[in-house]
Simulated scan of single mutants.
Amino acid sequence: MATSYEIDIALSSATLTTLKTQGFSLYAFKAVQSTVQGGAPLVWFKTNNFLPSTQVVWQEQYQAYISNSQVISGGAVNAQNSIDMNLGDTADVDQYGNLTSTSGGTDSAISVLNQGPQPWTTGISQMTNGVANPMCAIPLNGNMMDVVAPIERVLLTFATNTVDTGTVQYKCFSSGALVDLTAAQTRAVSFDINQGWSWGTGTWARSILPNASLVPLLITSNASA
Rank of each mutant, 00 (worst) to 15 (best):
Q22E: 15
T15Y: 03
Q55F: 09
K46Y: 04
N211H: 03
I72P: 12
N211V: 03
G104H: 09
I124G: 06
N48V: 00
P41G: 02
Q195A: 15
T54D: 12
M1E: 10
N78L: 07
A64Y: 03
Q33D: 04
I219M: 13
L11W: 11
K171E: 15
Q80A: 14
N133H: 11
V32Y: 08
R206T: 13
T128W: 03
M85E: 01
M1K: 04
Y27R: 07
F158N: 02
Q80G: 14
F29C: 12
Y27H: 09
Q22G: 01
A225V: 09
P117L: 06
V93F: 04
G39I: 00
V154E: 11
C136R: 08
S221V: 15
A10E: 14
K30P: 01
E6D: 06
A91G: 05
S53H: 08
D146I: 00
E60Y: 03
A64T: 10
R187G: 13
G202P: 06
A223M: 10
S67T: 09
G23C: 06
S111H: 00
T160I: 10
S73W: 04
I124Q: 01
P119N: 15
W199A: 13
Y65R: 02
T165E: 14
P216R: 02
A183D: 14
D146G: 07
A225I: 02
Y65T: 07
L209I: 01
T157C: 04
T160K: 02
G142N: 01
N48D: 13
A14R: 04
T165M: 07
Y27Q: 08
E6I: 00
F50W: 12
G116C: 09
Y170F: 04
A149S: 15
V154C: 04
A79H: 01
E60W: 03
S190W: 01
K20L: 10
F29Y: 08
Q22L: 06
L99P: 03
I124R: 02
Q118K: 14
N161I: 00
P216G: 12
I193Y: 15
G104D: 08
N129P: 00
I7W: 06
M85L: 05
M145W: 00
F29M: 04
N194C: 01
I193K: 01
I7Y: 09
F45S: 05
L155T: 05
G142V: 01
F173Y: 07
P134I: 00
G123R: 07
I7M: 13
N49M: 12
T102M: 14
F158E: 00
N211L: 02
A2W: 08
I193D: 07
C136H: 11
Q115T: 11
